Simulated scan of single mutants.
Amino acid sequence: MKVSIDQDRCVAAGSCVTAAMDVFDQRDEDGVVVLLDPEPPAGLAAEVREAAAVCPAAAITVHE
């Protein structure tokens, strides 16, 4: 699994961090998503998919 983000689309909702805090974080200055692990382990796959699904801006793409 690979993950990519589009910081330009991010609306800083924080849903991704709530769903998968080991993979996503937010910048302190504006809350925009930061990708901590572009190739998360298989054990985090469900959380990453959930983060992509709940992102209100569709800023997260999961490549299987």
Rank of each mutant, 00 (worst) to 15 (best):
M1G: 14
M1K: 11
K2W: 14
K2E: 15
K2F: 14
V3Y: 05
V3G: 02
V3K: 05
V3Q: 04
V3P: 01
S4Y: 14
S4W: 13
S4C: 06
D6G: 14
D6R: 15
D6F: 13
D8I: 14
D8R: 15
D8V: 15
R9K: 15
C10I: 00
A12T: 10
A12S: 15
A13E: 12
S15Y: 13
V17N: 01
V17T: 04
V17R: 05
A19C: 04
A20E: 03
A20T: 03
A20K: 01
A20D: 05
M21V: 13
M21W: 15
M21K: 14
M21A: 14
D22G: 13
D22K: 12
V23F: 09
V23A: 05
F24H: 01
F24T: 01
D25A: 15
Q26K: 10
Q26C: 05
Q26A: 12
R27F: 07
R27I: 04
R27K: 13
D28M: 10
G31A: 07
G31P: 07
V32K: 15
V34G: 00
V34F: 10
V34H: 06
L35Q: 02
L35V: 04
L35K: 04
L36P: 01
D37E: 12
P38L: 02
E39K: 14
P41D: 03
P41S: 03
A42P: 00
G43I: 05
G43T: 11
G43W: 11
L44W: 07
L44S: 08
L44E: 11
A46E: 13
A46D: 10
E47M: 07
V48A: 02
V48N: 03
A52T: 08
A52E: 09
V54A: 06
V54P: 01
V54M: 02
V54T: 08
C55H: 03
A57H: 02
A57L: 06
A58H: 11
A58Q: 09
A59M: 07
I60S: 03
I60Y: 06
V62E: 03
V62L: 07
H63W: 10
H63Q: 05
E64F: 07
